[in-house]
Computed example of a mutant assay.
Amino acid sequence: MTTLRREPLADQVADALLERIRNGEWELGQKLPGETSLAPQFGVGRSTIREAIRQLAGRGVLATRQGAGVFVSALDASDDWIQVLNSADIASVVEARIAIEVESCALAAERRTPADLRSMRRALAHRGLDQSSVEEHVDSDIDFHRSIVIAAHNTVLAELFEYFVPRSRQAMIELVRLRSEFGSEADQCIHAQILEAISVGDPQSAAALSRDHLLTLKTKLR
C-alpha cells in the first residue's frame, strides 16, 4: 500500500498515479483499474480516487470515456498549461467557464437523454442540500455543471471541462469566500431554471440563463 503524506489526499493520489504512469505501469491508451481496485492500494475512499482521476484528466494525462472507463491519454503532465491555469485570475476563470458551459447547456437541451435528465436532477438536488463548508458547496456545484456537460455529448467539451476543474474549483472557492455567502435559495433557483430549459429542449433559453448567471458572478468581482 502506498504511504501518503499530510496534504490533500486527492493531490497525493494524483501524484502517485502520475508517477506510476511515468514508470510505465500503464501504457499509452491502456485502461486503468476501476475505483474499487485502486482505492485499497492507496488506503483511501473511491471519492478520493475519483477526484485524483479528475485532476489528471484536467492535466491531460487521463481521459474518461463514458461507459468504458478511464484511459491513459498522455505519459506525463503538461506543466506549462497548468502554470497558465494556476496564474489565471478569477475573472479569466469565469470567462472560460462561459465559453465551455454556455455551449454545453445549449447542446444538452438538444441531446439530453432520460438518463442524463435523471443525473442532472440528482446533482441539482444534492447541490440544494445544506452544505457545511464552502468546499462542499463548490464541489456539489461542479458536479451539477459536470452533469450538464456530459449531457451535451461532446467529448471535446467534456475533456476541456475536466481539464479545467482543478483551477475552476479553486477560483470558485475564492469567489464564494469573497461574497461571504453560499447556497442561497435564489442561487439554487437559477440552476433549477437552467435545468428546466434543458429539460424542455430549449437551447436558446438554457444558454442565455447560463450566460447571465456566469456574467453575474463576474460582475460581483468588481
Rank of each mutant, 00 (worst) to 15 (best):
T113E: 02
A115E: 13
A115M: 06
A115W: 03
D116R: 01
D116A: 01
L117D: 06
R118P: 01
R118Y: 06
R118K: 10
R118D: 12
S119T: 09
S119A: 15
M120T: 03
M120Q: 05
M120C: 00
R121P: 05
R122G: 11
R122A: 14
R122H: 13
A123I: 08
L124F: 08
L124V: 01
H126L: 15
H126R: 15
H126D: 13
R127T: 01
R127P: 01
R127V: 05
G128Q: 02
G128E: 08
L129R: 11
L129Y: 05
L129D: 10
L129T: 07
D130W: 11
D130C: 08
D130S: 14
Q131E: 04
Q131A: 08
Q131V: 01
V134Q: 08
V134W: 04
V134E: 03
E135V: 15
E135R: 14
H137S: 13
H137V: 11
V138K: 00
V138S: 07
V138H: 03
V138Q: 07
D139F: 08
D139I: 03
D139E: 13
S140V: 15
I142Q: 00
I142N: 01
F144A: 05
F144G: 00
R146Y: 11
R146Q: 12
S147I: 04
S147R: 03
I148G: 02
I148V: 13
V149D: 00
I150N: 03
I150L: 13
I150F: 07
A152K: 00
H153P: 04
H153R: 05
N154G: 03
T155E: 11
V156I: 14
V156N: 07
L157N: 02
L157T: 06
A158S: 15
A158R: 11
E159W: 10
L160H: 11
L160A: 15
L160C: 12
F161V: 08
F161W: 15
F161D: 14
E162P: 02
E162S: 12
Y163L: 13
Y163H: 14
F164Q: 10
F164D: 12
V165K: 03
P166A: 08
R167V: 14
R167Y: 03
R167M: 09
R167N: 09
S168D: 00
S168E: 02
R169W: 02
R169K: 10
Q170A: 13
A171I: 04
M172T: 10
M172S: 07
M172Q: 11
M172I: 08
M172C: 08
I173K: 10
E174H: 09
E174F: 06
E174A: 14
L175G: 04
L175V: 05
L175E: 04
V176I: 09
V176T: 07
V176C: 04
R177V: 01
R177K: 14
R177A: 08
R177W: 10
L178N: 05
L178A: 09
S180W: 00
E181T: 03
E181P: 03
F182S: 02
G183L: 09
G183E: 00
S184Q: 06
S184P: 07
E185N: 09
A186T: 14
D187T: 04
D187C: 00
